[in-house]
Design a protein around this nucleic acid. Structure first.
Length: 273
DNA sequence: CTTTTTCCCTGGACGC
DNA sequence: TGCGTCCAGGGAAAAA
């Protein structure tokens, strides 16, 4: 499931191939992708748009066009973007963009069809993101102080609050569990109860988990692939995610699974307190 | 306001 | 082998 490291890997892989290119021909075959807008109308609007930047905000991909318009892509659970030379065949392909160099094709694949493409007019991006996406956790904005402010009135489980994209954007189910393991914090702790040293440990844990994910080109459990179609490597070094019953890498105690924020949550009951 | 629950969607795992 | 059931989860929306 694409979280910040996976989306960043796709972004950096596509960027050199997309920037400066024009969308020549666009086909959107899944009406869910552009809901509630008509996919044929969105495809027609995208044709002729020239890309000037490919950015990421949280788990969103931001395709900026010369006209000031923006295509905001969210991959949700199983979405992926691939750069191809030949279109080939794929039953789970939901959209295709042919670029103006005559050879490159960007293919959007999404088995479970949760992903979204939203075309925004100039000036619409900031207000759209403002109510949905908080600060970037890998920037200077994530500090023990800013985190304390964000968690102050939140009595919900720490894990659930980390999944709230308005707190800090881009942490999903996998990296939340990994960050909490690095920070030695129990996922069910009330978020507002952390001490100053614990807040500092959590900041370091979040950054460490995300940076490792980016360095390993993301985690491939089943569907995730980078823009070249290659699997990530991060899944080979999960500390807790999906490791119920296996020994903790720090203390050897068996990893347990619980539920937090409505999501499967793995942790070490011995050294995460 | 915060928190929890339901829903969307599909393939894979599992039980019989 | 072939069903039926459950599970995975990001985020919107509804409910509490």
């Amino acid at each position: 499931m694409p979280e910040l490291p996976e989306v960043e890997t796709i972004r950096s892989g596509l960027e050199p191939h997309l920037v400066g290119r024009t969308f020549d021909r666009v086909e959107i075959s899944d009406p869910r992708l552009t809901r509630p807008h008509d996919p044929r109308e969105v495809a027609a609007e995208l044709e002729g748009e020239r890309v000037i930047a490919l950015e990421r905000r949280g788990k969103y991909l931001v395709v900026r066009f010369e006209t000031g318009r923006v295509l905001l892509i969210h991959l949700r659970m199983t979405g992926s973007l691939r750069l191809l030379r030949d279109e080939g065949d794929d039953p789970y392909r939901r959209a295709v963009v042919r670029l103006d160099n005559g050879s490159d094709v960007v293919a959007y694949r999404d088995v479970r069809r949760f992903g979204t493409w939203l075309l925004l007019e100039p000036g619409e991006l900031e207000p759209y993101l403002a109510t949905r996406v908080g600060a970037e956790p890998l920037g200077d904005a994530l500090t023990a102080r800013s985190l304390a402010d964000r968690l102050a009135r939140r009595r919900a489980p720490l894990k659930a609050v980390l999944l709230d994209q308005r707190v800090f954007a881009g942490v999903g189910n996998i990296y939340a569990d990994e960050a909490l393991w690095w920070a030695r914090l129990h996922p069910l702790r009330p978020a507002c109860d952390l001490t100053q040293p614990e807040l500092k440990a959590l900041v370091r844990g979040i950054k460490r988990a995300l940076r490792r994910g980016i360095a390993r080109q993301g985690a491939t459990l089943r569907d995730y692939r980078n823009a070249d179609g290659a699997a990530g490597e991060m899944q080979t070094e999960f500390r807790v995610y999906g490791r119920a019953g296996e020994p903790c890498f720090r203390c050897g105690h068996p990893i347990e699974k619980t539920r937090a924020g409505g999501r499967g949550t793995w942790f070490c009951p011995n050294c995460q307190i």
